[in-house]
Nucleic acid binder design. Structure first.
Lengths: 126, 126
DNA sequence: GATTTGTTATAGTGTATATAGAACAAGAAG
DNA sequence: CTTCTTGTTCTATATACACTATAACAAATC
């Protein structure tokens, strides 16, 4: 179930991209599954086709889905494969300001790890 | 030392805010220290006064500095104080999509913890 | 053959980012 | 006290991004 909050300061295409990724992590969507068409999903969510298209292409650039023109988008994410160094570096760069925010507020390494553990549980269970 | 990359897709005021926070974490800036005036820093960095002002006010809203009108901005970050639940929740929400990105790429809890540990070391040492 | 698919193009609206200049009142410094 | 500097506030402009809207196209599907 995907819910878009039009009032959020998080762009719609980011909300959609994130929620699809979470669905895969939770197992609601699996490798091989086909995503709805950009027009169909846009209609269901009440948003524009191009916004959905943008989300799909970002997922493709992350290696999570494969878009076959005139056919559809198939999930290719492989949780058994090892993450590439390129994506690992990108992740580090994005994590950095958040880690700094924790450290500056007095969190130590253990507390940050606990926070991450909590987030992992949230993502898997919700 | 603060370096602004005008070509980056990261807004200047975010770059500045982040680098000031990293300076505090590293110890280059400490509680009680005064930040340069918005006009002075803007001149040094070759950016607009209003951009620096925006960064300062964001730092203030995070409780990291206190802006005393007509006087200056003083660092109030207290690493001995415990982080508030509000900030902890905000951090969780921001961390979530990055954690998802790791999980979807096959990382397990331990690998994510190792990544975080690496980031913490980077921030503290660089 | 008709429908649906993703793609491409153009256009419009609203918001965010960044710059610029000016003016103001209050603190600092001479 | 006078001068300078301070952060604040206001207006204005240019650019980029986000989102929507509409249209047309070629290929796959039915």
């Amino acid at each position: 179930m995907i819910i878009i909050d039009a009032e959020s300061d998080i762009p719609i295409y980011v909300q959609l991209r994130t929620q699809i990724m979470e669905s895969i992590v939770r197992g609601d969507l699996s490798t091989g599954d086909t995503l709805p068409s950009v027009r169909g999903l846009a209609g269901d969510l009440g948003i524009n086709m191009h916004t959905v298209n943008k989300s799909y292409h970002e997922l493709e650039s992350k290696g999570i889905i494969e878009i076959v023109p005139k056919k559809g988008a198939v999930i290719t994410a492989n949780k058994d494969k090892k993450i590439s160094k390129k994506r690992l570096d990108a992740l580090s760069k994005e994590l950095r300001p958040l880690v700094v925010e924790g450290l500056i507020n007095g969190m130590n390494k253990e507390e940050i790890h606990e926070l991450i553990t909590g987030v992992i549980s949230e993502v898997r269970e919700e």
